[in-house]
Design a protein around this nucleic acid. Structure first.
Length: 257
DNA sequence: ATGACCCTAGTTTAGGGA
């Protein structure tokens, strides 16, 4: 059973790409981020015709998350994170699918740092940490899949020295990601590939993909109940080389049924 | 250090992304 996170950078512009990928890979559960579409403009019928049940939380122009399930309907449990009633950004959706709890998340970018956007990022991660505490220790299987906008370590970026002051790599952010992980989450890709250079994002600028000047910022965190079932993890890197690609590539785990 | 590119909104240039 394959679970994937994929920042598609605009579902309007990326729909042909997304449908091709769904057809070729037939992933079981897909978490999408950056829909960049209001609720009513989500291409629900195209997704359903491809064989997927779906829930989504749209937003005009920016953000937006969705959970797709092949041959079944995700059952929504949470829409948004508690802790800030004034936060209207669509960045968190949680559902149960085929016995799994799936948190689909899109952490704020946070640049420029320091500044209000960076403060919002740090606060958002704290709200996430509060929300996930009980999930980490749950005996039920839970996966937190998404675009974390966090480069966890120097191994996860092509030139770490260039990123030390960036909101994706600043120590406050890495420290917060560490505290989240310390609740009992397993970073699937890094656990199965401890030394490998693996990226999930390549800038549109400067031929970043061709040069493999990438970042690893899309992660699947597994609680102990899922960790026991983990058999493989990777990135559909070739999708980044398709025509009109997103700047991110689908990032996945394979679980025993 | 800078700017390179892409998406959206909605009319043409600006904001956001990372």
């Amino acid at each position: 059973m394959r679970i994937v996170t994929y920042n598609i950078n605009g579902i309007g512009a990326r729909l042909p790409n997304l449908l091709r990928w769904l057809g070729e890979k037939a992933p079981d559960i897909v978490c999408l981020q950056e829909l960049k579409a209001p609720q009513e403009k989500f291409p629900e019928s195209a997704i359903r015709e491809a064989g997927y049940g779906v829930i989504w939380h749209g937003q005009k122009s920016w953000n937006g998350v969705a959970i797709l399930a092949r041959g079944s309907e995700p059952v929504e449990v949470h829409r948004g994170l508690a802790g800030d009633t004034e936060d209207l950004q669509s960045r968190y959706l949680q559902a149960t699918v085929r016995g799994l709890t799936i948190g689909c998340l899109y952490v704020p970018n946070g640049n420029p740092a320091p500044g209000p956007k960076f403060d919002y990022k740090l606060r958002w991660i704290e709200r996430l940490i509060t929300h996930t505490a009980v999930l980490a220790s749950s005996r039920e299987p839970v996966i937190l899949a998404g675009d974390y906008n966090v480069i966890p370590t120097e191994r996860d970026v092509y030139k770490p020295e260039r990123w030390v002051n960036d909101a994706l790599f600043r120590v406050e952010v890495r420290e917060a990601f560490q505290r989240l992980s310390a609740q009992g989450w397993t970073d699937a890709i890094r656990t199965l590939h401890p030394e490998a250079t693996i990226y999930t994002f390549w800038d549109f600028f400067r031929d970043a993909y061709k040069r493999n000047a990438g970042l690893r910022i899309d992660h699947l965190l597994l609680n102990a109940a899922v960790r026991a079932r983990l058999v493989a993890a990777g990135v559909d890197r070739d999708v980044r080389g398709w025509e009109k690609p997103s700047d991110h590539a689908p990032t996945w785990v394979e679980l025993e049924e």
